[in-house]
Protein backbone atom coordinates (compact mmCIF):
# COMPACT_ATOMS: atom_id res chain seq x y z
CA UNK A 1 0.00 0.00 0.00
CA UNK A 2 1.51 3.28 -1.02
CA UNK A 3 -1.21 5.83 -1.01
CA UNK A 4 0.20 9.34 -0.76
CA UNK A 5 -1.76 11.86 1.26
CA UNK A 6 -1.13 15.54 1.65
CA UNK A 7 -2.98 17.03 4.60
CA UNK A 8 -3.30 20.77 4.88
CA UNK A 9 0.12 21.11 3.30
CA UNK A 10 1.55 24.59 2.80
CA UNK A 11 4.81 26.04 1.57
CA UNK A 12 6.11 29.58 1.87
CA UNK A 13 9.40 31.03 0.76
CA UNK A 14 10.24 33.82 3.18
CA UNK A 15 6.69 35.01 3.66
CA UNK A 16 5.58 34.37 0.08
CA UNK A 17 3.01 31.61 0.11
CA UNK A 18 3.64 29.38 -2.88
CA UNK A 19 1.31 26.58 -1.82
CA UNK A 20 -1.77 27.62 0.17
CA UNK A 21 -3.26 24.89 2.42
CA UNK A 22 -3.70 21.89 0.16
CA UNK A 23 -5.32 18.49 0.61
CA UNK A 24 -4.72 15.77 -1.92
CA UNK A 25 -4.88 12.00 -2.07
CA UNK A 26 -2.86 10.04 -4.61
CA UNK A 27 -4.42 6.57 -4.68
CA UNK A 28 -2.23 3.48 -4.35
CA UNK A 29 -0.85 2.21 -7.68
CA UNK A 30 -2.28 5.17 -9.55
CA UNK A 31 -0.55 7.21 -12.22
CA UNK A 32 -1.35 10.71 -11.01
CA UNK A 33 -0.34 13.71 -13.04
CA UNK A 34 0.03 17.15 -11.51
CA UNK A 35 -0.47 19.61 -14.30
CA UNK A 36 -0.55 23.39 -14.41
CA UNK A 37 1.16 26.35 -15.97
CA UNK A 38 4.80 27.07 -15.27
CA UNK A 39 5.40 28.51 -11.80
CA UNK A 40 2.21 27.16 -10.26
CA UNK A 41 4.08 25.13 -7.65
CA UNK A 42 4.14 21.65 -9.15
CA UNK A 43 7.83 21.09 -8.59
CA UNK A 44 7.63 22.53 -5.10
CA UNK A 45 4.86 20.09 -4.25
CA UNK A 46 6.72 17.12 -5.70
CA UNK A 47 9.94 18.10 -3.93
CA UNK A 48 8.09 18.27 -0.64
CA UNK A 49 6.85 14.73 -1.21
CA UNK A 50 10.44 13.73 -2.03
CA UNK A 51 11.75 15.39 1.11
CA UNK A 52 14.03 17.75 -0.79
CA UNK A 53 12.02 20.77 0.26
CA UNK A 54 10.95 21.45 3.81
CA UNK A 55 7.26 21.56 4.56
CA UNK A 56 6.09 24.88 6.02
CA UNK A 57 3.06 23.31 7.69
CA UNK A 58 0.83 20.29 7.24
CA UNK A 59 1.53 16.62 6.85
CA UNK A 60 2.61 14.11 4.23
CA UNK A 61 1.91 10.41 4.58
CA UNK A 62 3.08 7.63 2.32
CA UNK A 63 1.42 4.26 2.77
CA UNK A 64 -0.16 5.52 5.99
CA UNK A 65 3.17 6.46 7.50
CA UNK A 66 3.88 10.08 8.42
CA UNK A 67 6.99 11.07 6.46
CA UNK A 68 6.66 14.85 6.82
CA UNK A 69 10.12 15.17 8.36
CA UNK A 70 11.67 11.93 7.15
CA UNK A 71 14.91 11.79 5.20
CA UNK A 72 14.42 11.55 1.39
CA UNK A 73 16.10 8.16 1.32
CA UNK A 74 13.78 6.80 4.02
CA UNK A 75 10.48 7.59 2.30
CA UNK A 76 10.42 4.72 -0.17
CA UNK A 77 10.41 7.14 -3.07
CA UNK A 78 12.55 7.56 -6.16
CA UNK A 79 12.71 10.65 -8.30
CA UNK A 80 13.44 11.31 -11.96
CA UNK A 81 14.63 14.85 -12.57
CA UNK A 82 14.00 17.00 -15.62
CA UNK A 83 17.76 17.34 -16.08
CA UNK A 84 18.11 13.56 -15.49
CA UNK A 85 20.74 14.41 -12.87
CA UNK A 86 22.97 11.50 -13.89
CA UNK A 87 26.36 11.33 -12.19
CA UNK A 88 28.61 12.30 -15.12
CA UNK A 89 31.71 10.51 -13.80
CA UNK A 90 30.00 7.15 -13.35
CA UNK A 91 29.16 4.55 -15.97
CA UNK A 92 25.53 3.76 -16.69
CA UNK A 93 25.79 0.63 -14.53
CA UNK A 94 27.26 2.61 -11.64
CA UNK A 95 24.62 5.30 -12.00
CA UNK A 96 21.86 2.73 -11.78
CA UNK A 97 23.53 0.79 -8.99
CA UNK A 98 24.61 3.75 -6.86
CA UNK A 99 21.73 3.55 -4.38
CA UNK A 100 22.33 -0.18 -3.94
CA UNK A 101 26.04 0.38 -3.39
CA UNK A 102 25.25 2.97 -0.71
CA UNK A 103 22.87 0.49 0.91
CA UNK A 104 25.80 -1.97 1.07
CA UNK A 105 24.05 -4.49 -1.16
CA UNK A 106 26.34 -7.41 -2.08
CA UNK A 107 28.15 -6.86 -5.40
CA UNK A 108 26.53 -9.87 -7.13
CA UNK A 109 23.08 -8.71 -6.22
CA UNK A 110 23.83 -5.20 -7.44
CA UNK A 111 24.94 -6.64 -10.75
CA UNK A 112 21.81 -8.74 -11.21
CA UNK A 113 19.47 -5.97 -10.22
CA UNK A 114 21.19 -3.44 -12.47
CA UNK A 115 20.96 -5.97 -15.32
CA UNK A 116 17.25 -6.46 -14.66
CA UNK A 117 16.56 -2.74 -14.69
CA UNK A 118 18.69 -2.32 -17.81
CA UNK A 119 16.76 -5.11 -19.53
CA UNK A 120 13.43 -3.43 -18.81
CA UNK A 121 14.75 -0.22 -20.33
CA UNK A 122 16.77 -1.73 -23.22
CA UNK A 123 20.01 -0.36 -21.82
CA UNK A 124 22.00 -3.61 -21.70
CA UNK A 125 24.39 -2.51 -24.45
CA UNK A 126 25.23 0.78 -22.77
CA UNK A 127 26.06 -0.28 -19.23
CA UNK A 128 29.74 0.61 -19.53
CA UNK A 129 29.24 4.00 -21.13
CA UNK A 130 29.39 7.35 -19.43
CA UNK A 131 26.23 9.49 -19.59
CA UNK A 132 27.80 11.97 -21.98
CA UNK A 133 28.10 9.22 -24.59
CA UNK A 134 24.35 8.64 -24.59
CA UNK A 135 21.50 10.27 -26.46
CA UNK A 136 18.83 12.26 -24.63
CA UNK A 137 16.38 9.37 -24.72
CA UNK A 138 18.97 6.92 -23.39
CA UNK A 139 19.91 9.28 -20.57
CA UNK A 140 16.26 9.51 -19.70
CA UNK A 141 16.12 5.74 -19.51
CA UNK A 142 19.15 5.61 -17.25
CA UNK A 143 17.46 8.10 -14.93
CA UNK A 144 14.39 5.88 -14.86
CA UNK A 145 16.59 2.82 -14.35
CA UNK A 146 18.15 4.47 -11.34
CA UNK A 147 14.65 4.88 -9.92
CA UNK A 148 13.45 1.36 -10.77
CA UNK A 149 16.38 -0.45 -9.25
CA UNK A 150 15.53 0.79 -5.77
CA UNK A 151 12.05 -0.74 -6.02
CA UNK A 152 10.40 2.30 -4.47
CA UNK A 153 6.80 2.45 -3.40
CA UNK A 154 6.32 5.79 -5.11
CA UNK A 155 7.95 7.17 -8.26
CA UNK A 156 8.21 10.91 -8.62
CA UNK A 157 8.73 12.46 -12.04
CA UNK A 158 9.41 16.17 -12.55
CA UNK A 159 8.82 17.03 -16.22
CA UNK A 160 10.97 14.09 -17.30
CA UNK A 161 10.18 14.40 -20.99
CA UNK A 162 10.56 18.09 -21.57
CA UNK A 163 14.15 17.85 -22.84
CA UNK A 164 13.25 15.32 -25.53
CA UNK A 165 12.12 15.97 -29.10
CA UNK A 166 8.47 15.53 -29.99
CA UNK A 167 8.75 12.06 -31.52
CA UNK A 168 10.78 10.67 -28.63
CA UNK A 169 8.42 12.26 -26.15
CA UNK A 170 5.45 10.49 -27.72
CA UNK A 171 7.34 7.19 -27.57
CA UNK A 172 8.44 7.69 -23.96
CA UNK A 173 4.87 8.49 -22.95
CA UNK A 174 3.84 5.05 -24.09
CA UNK A 175 6.85 3.42 -22.44
CA UNK A 176 6.21 5.15 -19.14
CA UNK A 177 2.55 4.11 -19.17
CA UNK A 178 3.63 0.51 -19.87
CA UNK A 179 6.24 0.69 -17.15
CA UNK A 180 3.54 1.75 -14.73
CA UNK A 181 1.46 -1.27 -15.71
CA UNK A 182 4.45 -3.57 -15.27
CA UNK A 183 5.68 -2.25 -11.93
CA UNK A 184 2.33 -1.53 -10.34
CA UNK A 185 3.81 1.25 -8.22
CA UNK A 186 2.30 4.60 -7.39
CA UNK A 187 3.55 7.29 -9.74
CA UNK A 188 3.31 11.03 -9.34
CA UNK A 189 4.15 12.85 -12.51
CA UNK A 190 4.54 16.60 -12.89
CA UNK A 191 4.15 18.34 -16.22
CA UNK A 192 2.97 21.59 -17.74
CA UNK A 193 1.87 19.69 -20.85
CA UNK A 194 -1.79 18.73 -20.79
CA UNK A 195 -1.23 16.20 -23.58
CA UNK A 196 1.10 14.20 -21.30
CA UNK A 197 -1.49 14.46 -18.55
CA UNK A 198 -4.32 13.28 -20.78
CA UNK A 199 -2.41 10.39 -22.34
CA UNK A 200 -0.82 8.88 -19.24
CA UNK A 201 -2.86 9.70 -16.18
CA UNK A 202 -5.35 7.67 -14.20
CA UNK A 203 -5.90 10.80 -12.22
CA UNK A 204 -5.14 14.37 -13.20
CA UNK A 205 -4.66 17.12 -10.63
CA UNK A 206 -4.92 20.57 -12.15
CA UNK A 207 -3.05 23.25 -10.22
CA UNK A 208 -3.13 27.02 -10.47
CA UNK A 209 -1.05 29.20 -8.17
CA UNK A 210 -0.63 26.30 -5.78
CA UNK A 211 -4.34 25.62 -5.53
CA UNK A 212 -6.00 22.43 -6.70
CA UNK A 213 -8.55 23.35 -9.36
CA UNK A 214 -9.95 19.90 -10.06
CA UNK A 215 -9.03 16.27 -9.54
CA UNK A 216 -10.34 13.53 -11.76
CA UNK A 217 -9.90 11.08 -14.58
CA UNK A 218 -8.75 12.66 -17.87
CA UNK A 219 -12.11 12.41 -19.59
CA UNK A 220 -13.96 13.73 -16.53
CA UNK A 221 -11.84 16.86 -16.67
CA UNK A 222 -12.32 17.08 -20.39
CA UNK A 223 -16.06 16.61 -20.34
CA UNK A 224 -17.04 18.30 -17.11
CA UNK A 225 -14.50 20.95 -16.19
CA UNK A 226 -15.42 22.59 -12.91
CA UNK A 227 -14.21 26.02 -13.88
CA UNK A 228 -13.00 28.03 -16.84
CA UNK A 229 -9.33 27.50 -15.91
CA UNK A 230 -9.62 23.72 -16.22
CA UNK A 231 -11.86 24.11 -19.26
CA UNK A 232 -9.22 26.12 -21.09
CA UNK A 233 -6.19 24.24 -19.76
CA UNK A 234 -7.32 20.75 -20.77
CA UNK A 235 -7.84 20.09 -24.46
CA UNK A 236 -6.05 21.28 -27.59
CA UNK A 237 -7.06 23.56 -29.29
CA UNK A 238 -8.52 25.17 -26.19
CA UNK A 239 -12.18 25.36 -25.39
CA UNK A 240 -13.85 28.49 -26.80
CA UNK A 241 -15.29 30.74 -24.11
CA UNK A 242 -18.02 33.04 -25.36
CA UNK A 243 -19.44 35.81 -23.25
CA UNK A 244 -21.84 38.68 -23.53
CA UNK A 245 -25.16 38.13 -25.24
CA UNK A 246 -24.30 34.62 -26.38
CA UNK A 247 -23.63 33.51 -22.81
CA UNK A 248 -26.63 35.35 -21.47
CA UNK A 249 -28.87 33.28 -23.80
CA UNK A 250 -27.87 30.21 -21.77
CA UNK A 251 -28.16 31.89 -18.41
CA UNK A 252 -24.45 32.20 -17.64
CA UNK A 253 -21.64 34.70 -17.66
CA UNK A 254 -19.57 32.61 -20.03
CA UNK A 255 -20.40 29.68 -22.21
CA UNK A 256 -17.74 27.21 -23.28
CA UNK A 257 -17.71 24.99 -26.30
CA UNK A 258 -14.89 22.77 -27.52
CA UNK A 259 -13.70 23.23 -31.11
CA UNK A 260 -14.68 19.66 -31.98
CA UNK A 261 -18.21 20.17 -30.64
CA UNK A 262 -19.07 22.79 -33.25
CA UNK A 263 -20.50 21.94 -36.65
CA UNK A 264 -21.29 23.98 -39.73
CA UNK A 265 -25.05 24.09 -39.47
CA UNK A 266 -27.81 26.56 -38.86
CA UNK A 267 -29.96 24.26 -36.69
CA UNK A 268 -29.07 25.90 -33.41
CA UNK A 269 -26.69 28.69 -34.41
CA UNK A 270 -24.37 29.98 -31.75
CA UNK A 271 -21.86 31.98 -33.79
CA UNK A 272 -21.43 32.97 -37.35
CA UNK A 273 -18.55 34.75 -38.94
CA UNK A 274 -15.75 34.81 -41.46
CA UNK A 275 -13.09 32.12 -41.72
CA UNK A 276 -9.84 34.08 -41.19
CA UNK A 277 -7.43 31.18 -41.06
CA UNK A 278 -7.53 27.45 -41.63
CA UNK A 279 -4.99 24.76 -40.70
CA UNK A 280 -5.26 21.57 -42.74
CA UNK A 281 -3.95 18.74 -40.61
CA UNK A 282 -5.18 15.95 -42.83
CA UNK A 283 -7.55 14.19 -40.46
CA UNK A 284 -8.84 17.51 -39.16
CA UNK A 285 -9.13 21.05 -40.32
CA UNK A 286 -8.78 23.70 -37.64
CA UNK A 287 -10.59 26.86 -38.66
CA UNK A 288 -10.34 30.23 -36.92
CA UNK A 289 -13.59 32.14 -37.28
CA UNK A 290 -13.93 35.83 -36.55
CA UNK A 291 -17.44 36.72 -35.46
CA UNK A 292 -18.82 40.12 -34.62
CA UNK A 293 -20.64 39.13 -31.44
CA UNK A 294 -18.32 36.44 -29.97
CA UNK A 295 -14.83 37.37 -31.16
CA UNK A 296 -12.40 34.68 -32.31
CA UNK A 297 -13.76 31.12 -32.27
CA UNK A 298 -11.77 28.01 -33.15
CA UNK A 299 -13.52 25.05 -34.70
CA UNK A 300 -12.27 21.57 -35.56
CA UNK A 301 -13.86 20.15 -38.66
CA UNK A 302 -13.50 16.96 -40.58
CA UNK A 303 -10.35 17.01 -42.69
CA UNK A 304 -12.31 16.52 -45.90
CA UNK A 305 -14.09 19.84 -45.44
CA UNK A 306 -13.31 22.20 -48.28
CA UNK A 307 -13.08 25.48 -46.46
CA UNK A 308 -12.20 28.75 -48.12
CA UNK A 309 -10.54 31.54 -46.29
CA UNK A 310 -12.89 34.51 -46.23
CA UNK A 311 -16.03 32.44 -46.48
CA UNK A 312 -18.89 33.06 -44.07
CA UNK A 313 -20.00 30.11 -41.95
CA UNK A 314 -22.55 29.52 -39.21
CA UNK A 315 -21.73 27.14 -36.37
CA UNK A 316 -24.01 25.15 -34.09
CA UNK A 317 -22.94 23.18 -31.01
CA UNK A 318 -23.70 19.51 -30.69
CA UNK A 319 -26.55 18.99 -28.24
CA UNK A 320 -25.48 18.85 -24.61
CA UNK A 321 -21.95 19.97 -25.36
CA UNK A 322 -22.09 23.53 -24.07
CA UNK A 323 -20.59 24.30 -20.66
CA UNK A 324 -22.07 27.22 -18.74
CA UNK A 325 -19.97 29.20 -16.22
CA UNK A 326 -20.88 31.91 -13.72
CA UNK A 327 -19.14 35.23 -13.23
CA UNK A 328 -16.48 33.58 -11.02
CA UNK A 329 -15.73 31.03 -13.70
CA UNK A 330 -17.41 28.18 -11.78
CA UNK A 331 -19.39 25.62 -13.72
CA UNK A 332 -23.18 25.88 -13.80
CA UNK A 333 -23.58 22.70 -15.79
CA UNK A 334 -24.22 21.78 -19.40
CA UNK A 335 -26.65 22.92 -22.03
Amino acid sequence: MAEVRLNNLTKSYGGVEVIPPLDLTIPDKSFSVLVGPSGCGKSTLLRMVAGLEEVTSGQITIGGEDVTDADPAKRGIAMVFQSYALYPHMSVADNIGFALKLAKTPKDEIRTRVKEAAAILQLEDYLDRKPKALSGGQRQRVAIGRAIVRQPKVFLFDEPLSNLDAALRAQMRVELAELHEKLGATMIYVTHDQVEAMTMADQIVVLKKGEVQQVGAPLDLYNTPENTFVAEFIGMPKMNLLNGATAARFGGDKVGVRPEHLEISSDNPIVSGEVVHAEYLGADTIAHVQSAEAGRVVVRLDGSHPLQRGSEITLSPRPGCLRIFDANGQSLGAA
Binding site: P72, A85, L102
Partner: peptide
Protein backbone atom coordinates in the same frame (compact mmCIF):
# COMPACT_ATOMS: atom_id res chain seq x y z
CA UNK B 1 24.20 21.23 -10.30
CA UNK B 2 22.03 21.01 -7.19
CA UNK B 3 20.12 18.18 -8.90
CA UNK B 4 23.10 15.87 -8.59
CA UNK B 5 23.46 16.23 -4.86
CA UNK B 6 19.70 15.93 -4.46
CA UNK B 7 19.65 12.77 -6.55
CA UNK B 8 22.42 11.41 -4.33
CA UNK B 9 20.43 12.28 -1.21
CA UNK B 10 17.46 10.35 -2.56
CA UNK B 11 19.79 7.48 -3.42
CA UNK B 12 20.63 7.40 0.27
CA UNK B 13 23.98 9.16 0.39
CA UNK B 14 24.96 10.85 3.64
CA UNK B 15 26.65 14.28 3.43
CA UNK B 16 30.12 12.73 3.63
CA UNK B 17 29.25 10.22 0.92
CA UNK B 18 27.84 12.97 -1.30
CA UNK B 19 31.18 14.76 -0.96
CA UNK B 20 33.23 11.65 -1.61
CA UNK B 21 31.24 10.01 -4.39
CA UNK B 22 29.74 13.01 -6.16
CA UNK B 23 31.41 16.33 -5.37
CA UNK B 24 35.08 15.33 -5.28
CA UNK B 25 35.00 13.38 -8.56
CA UNK B 26 33.34 16.37 -10.21
CA UNK B 27 36.06 18.64 -8.80
CA UNK B 28 38.85 16.70 -10.52
Amino acid sequence: PEDLTEAARIDGAKPGQITWFVKLPLLK
